[in-house]
């Protein structure tokens, strides 16, 4: 029985990881506390739903369309809101308030167009897969495989390409990055596109399983932020560790107590890390030079 909960937790952790990397991409490189990802996450879900139900796209086509549209919206948040504020030397606090405003606008617009009721992507009965005592549903399998593949592709780009090197460099020092001859604005545009792709992947894979409503973005964003912090702020691959640990912990909480204790455990874990290991599980204490 506990094995089933651990498997469920790992799969949820993959989704948290995707979302956490999407958030960390923006936060680590621009220092913007990008709360608007909650709105972008909801937008992706609705685009997936529209593609599936109105355009009659297959799962893969609807997924790709939603990812592309979400990448566009993510880039738009940078070009229309963050970059003009940056050019006016706005502080990180102002950026965060703007991000909250942006999230509210996106969610309200979606609620206005599509209504507040919960919608479903797939309403047929799908046969689950059995492996011993472990049961994996079809949406869970998609979450594990597609989510895992997106993470692997991202890690490959991050660690083995020049673009990944630039991304890690920008997250260290923007001024030095520019002094070495790199266009910060162009790099930021790519970052917002990549962030949009990751958030959209997390969103489509989740709503395929549990359906969608306009208010679902915030809780997953908070979990992603917690995953990023407990994994280790400042790095990208640590988000995967943080996401999986958080997913498994939440799942074990359900196993041991009840699902309504999940949030309490999440924030308890966050507090423990902030007090005892602020650099996170795989973060490192930097040498003070």
């Amino acid at each position: 029985m506990i094995g089933q909960f651990i498997v469920n937790g790992v799969i949820t952790g993959v989704i948290y990881s995707l979302m956490a990397i999407g958030f960390a991409l923006v936060y680590n490189t621009t220092r913007i506390f990008h709360i608007a990802v909650a709105g972008i996450y909801v937008f992706a879900a609705y685009m997936f739903w529209v593609a599936k139900w109105y355009l009659n796209c297959s799962f893969s086509n609807a997924f790709m369309l939603a990812v592309l549209l979400t990448m566009g919206l993510s880039l738009l948040t940078e070009l229309a809101v963050y970059r003009p504020l940056k050019n006016r030397n706005a502080s990180t606090n102002v950026m965060m308030i703007a991000s909250i405003g942006l999230m509210t606008i996106i969610i309200n617009l979606i609620a206005m167009f599509f209504g507040n009721e919960t919608k479903v992507i797939e309403n047929t009965i799908m046969m689950p897969y059995h492996r011993g005592n472990i049961i994996i549903t079809q949406p869970q399998l998609f979450q594990a495989l597609v989510g895992g593949m997106v993470i692997l592709v991202f890690m490959f780009i991050l660690l083995w390409t020049k673009w990944g090197l630039k991304l890690r460099a920008l997250s260290t020092d923007e001024t030095l990055f520019e002094t070495l001859g790199f266009d910060t604005n162009q790099a930021r545009s790519y970052i917002f596109l990549a962030s949009g792709a990751l958030v959209a992947s997390a969103s489509c894979l989740t709503v395929y399983d549990v359906g969608l409503d306009p208010n679902m973005g915030m809780s997953v964003t908070i979990n992603a932020i917690v995953a990023m912090i407990i994994g280790g702020v400042g790095k990208f691959n640590t988000c995967i560790i943080g996401g999986i640990v958080l997913g498994v912990l939440q799942s074990l909480t359900v196993y041991e107590f009840a699902s309504n204790w999940q949030n309490a455990v999440t924030f308890l874990v966050l507090l423990i890390f902030l007090f005892l290991r602020p650099q996170g599980i795989a973060g490192y204490k930097q040498r003070t030079v």
Partner: peptide
């Protein structure tokens, strides 16, 4: 922009910015 000046051939060592 600063990056274009760098591409023109002007490099800089900062007082505090060191290795990344």
């Amino acid at each position: 922009p600063a990056y274009k000046i760098s591409m023109e051939g002007i490099g800089r060592l900062f007082q505090d910015g060191q290795l990344m």
